[in-house]
Amino acid sequence: MSDSLYDRYGRPLVVGFVVVLAALSVASAYLRVETAGTAAVGDAIVSLYIAAVVLWGTFREGYDTPRFRIALYGVLVLWGSADLIAGADAPLAYLFLIGGSLLIAWESYSYTRERRKPVYER
């Protein structure tokens, strides 16, 4: 019974919420560039990438796939890179860049290791 209630009401509610949040992210990216100019382009690109990844995961890929997780970890790398390019020499930017790269490497390694297992072990 709970599965049918979720399929009927929950999934459309979650999808609608994700679409609203993605639209807000795109609008905030536009307003950020409009007010701050070229200094905010890096942050706007990160916001647009996050919105695109979440929409892609919602409508196309799903959230529990290696490709989605790698794209999501790419947000950390992009965020750290944007901060470093903008000149913010903060430890958090390095943490995002290095941590995101390590997460991408780990997910890629886990995915290829899982694919090499025999079918009866997956």
Results as ranks from 00 to 15, higher is better:
I45V: 15
G37Y: 04
R11F: 02
A51D: 09
L21M: 15
T58D: 12
S47C: 05
D3L: 09
A29C: 07
A52E: 06
Y6T: 01
F59W: 15
V33Y: 05
D7T: 01
V15M: 05
D43F: 02
G37F: 06
G42P: 07
Y30E: 10
V33R: 10
D7K: 06
A39E: 12
R11S: 04
Y49A: 14
I50V: 15
V41A: 09
V20H: 09
A36L: 09
W56F: 15
V18K: 12
A39L: 11
S25D: 06
W56I: 09
T65L: 02
A27V: 10
A36K: 07
T35F: 00
L48T: 08
V15K: 09
V19E: 12
W56C: 13
V18S: 11
R32A: 12
V46E: 04
S47Y: 05
L31R: 11
A44R: 02
G57C: 15
G10M: 03
Y30H: 07
L48V: 15
V18N: 15
L5I: 08
V15C: 03
P12H: 03
D43N: 08
V14L: 12
V14K: 06
A40C: 05
P12K: 03
A23D: 06
S25N: 12
V41C: 00
L31A: 13
A51L: 10
G42Q: 06
A36S: 08
A44D: 00
Y63R: 02
S25A: 14
P66G: 07
I45Q: 02
A40R: 05
P12G: 03
Y30D: 02
W56V: 12
T35H: 01
W56T: 15
S47I: 00
I45Y: 05
G57E: 14
R8H: 00
S47H: 06
F59R: 11
P12W: 01
A22Q: 08
R8V: 00
V20D: 07
G57Y: 14
G62R: 12
